[in-house]
Write a protein that binds this DNA or RNA. Structure first.
Lengths: 232, 232
DNA sequence: GACTTAAACAAACATTTGTTTTAAAATAGA
DNA sequence: TCTATTTTAAAACAAATGTTTGTTTAAGTC
């Protein structure tokens, strides 16, 4: 099929896309060095040479994969935030948005708009100081932190910048941990997969910790009997 | 020199140990697949064949490295806990031990009894579901969680098992995040290395969040004007 | 000193790696 | 149809990989 002007890198429908998806999954699971182009080609149902034909090199394919994932995540975050956060943000709205944000993030570990390996790939990249760290900083880490800090500031105007940043890291750290340490946690819980019940208790806990620490709860430290907050 | 009975694996003083240390550092930094035995040998100042001579294979060297690191970490944790936690634990002692624990863990990111790459290597292993996950579970993840949960239970007898576990993950998550996401955090902070000042504020924050959430602080939620909390 | 053995080393090994080449197949436009 | 271009496929490539070999060095034993 010789007609696509190759202007839009995403206009490819077939092999190229399959390669990106296969490579992404393998990179996320085993890392760059432990994944061979032959594995990628096999999983994508393509020829070995296809990698170099479409991406010129394995390393370039890696960059393309990260680019692709970042694009997807950015798009989803945009719509999600637009979905959660009203245009003009009142303080109670910010509090509610914060609650929904925590809930959504944790719940994405069992079901999400995006494939599970997206986040794992980014986690991998973040830990290794690879050249892809820059785009990840600009398109994922920084905007995520920024969005969270904005919500926190709107919910708690009395917070200083430093306190806000520390809170953002505390919330993110608690949440990410369940993704990062998924295997050990599941092993100790003797589960094969995160259960809805388990994640619900995690959400309730992190929410309680956060809101209590921020002074946003009505009943200071007392823990709710049933967790009756639903929303969405 | 043919005289060492090879009974004690740690009795080796020279090449074998250097190989383990070099390999560990490289594995921790770049991962298994991105590290070649030649790199390892070069860094250890040894011959390429030394790896196979002493460890029979690269993969076996990897196992040996993890074993070694786990041993070191276990030993340090034992003495550290014995140092912190009194034999018979009163509630106020548990609270204080908890405080010291958080402080020590965070501060280990800038200076520690153990080389920095130990924890990074374990973090790497935890994220990839490698065969070394089992020993890591038994010698690191589970005992660490257990120790933390014991302290929490002693400090807050009213906590249920599930609440205790959730708190352990919350504390661990917050702490580990600063190791896991070290690069991005430092980039956004425009620092080359964690500063004492920065880590002090992190310790203060995590401690405040934890103690406030657990109801262990004297002044419930009120935040200090200047962050005058000192301790230690 | 003869003998043994652990260790180190350089060289070569076989395999796997990413990549290139070459040609055939597929597709679109004339 | 013919032609041009893109895509696929098999094979081969050079480089790098993990590993093995044969030899040498040094230390301990008789």
């Amino acid at each position: 099929m010789g007609r696509r002007p190759k202007l839009l890198p995403d206009s490819n429908d077939d092999t190229r896309q399959r390669l990106i998806l296969a490579a992404g999954e393998l990179f996320a699971e085993k890392g760059f060095g432990d994944t061979s182009v032959r594995d990628i080609a096999r999983m994508a149902g393509a020829n070995v040479a296809a990698v170099n034909y479409h991406f010129t090199s394995k390393e370039n394919l890696y960059l393309e994969v990260v680019r692709f994932v970042l694009g997807q995540m950015t798009a989803v975050r945009r719509t999600a935030m637009a979905d959660i956060v009203p245009a003009a943000l009142t303080q109670p709205q910010a509090v509610e948005a914060l609650r929904v944000l925590i809930d959504r993030e944790i719940r994405s570990y069992v079901s999400s708009d995006l494939p599970r390996w997206y986040a794992r790939l980014i986690l991998r990249c973040i830990m290794s100081k690879s050249p892809v760290l820059d785009p990840i900083m600009e398109q994922a880490f920084r905007p995520n932190r920024q969005a969270l800090m904005s919500l926190l500031k709107a919910a708690c105007p009395h917070l200083s910048d430093e306190e806000t940043r520390l809170w953002a890291y505390s919330i993110t750290g608690q949440i990410v941990f369940y993704n990062f340490a998924r295997e050990p946690i599941l092993l100790l819980a003797r589960e094969k997969e995160y259960t809805e019940k388990f994640l619900r208790s995690v959400v309730a806990h992190i929410t309680r910790v956060t809101f209590s620490g921020l002074g946003l709860d009505k009943h200071p430290v007392r823990r709710p009997k049933k967790q009756a907050g639903k929303k969405s």
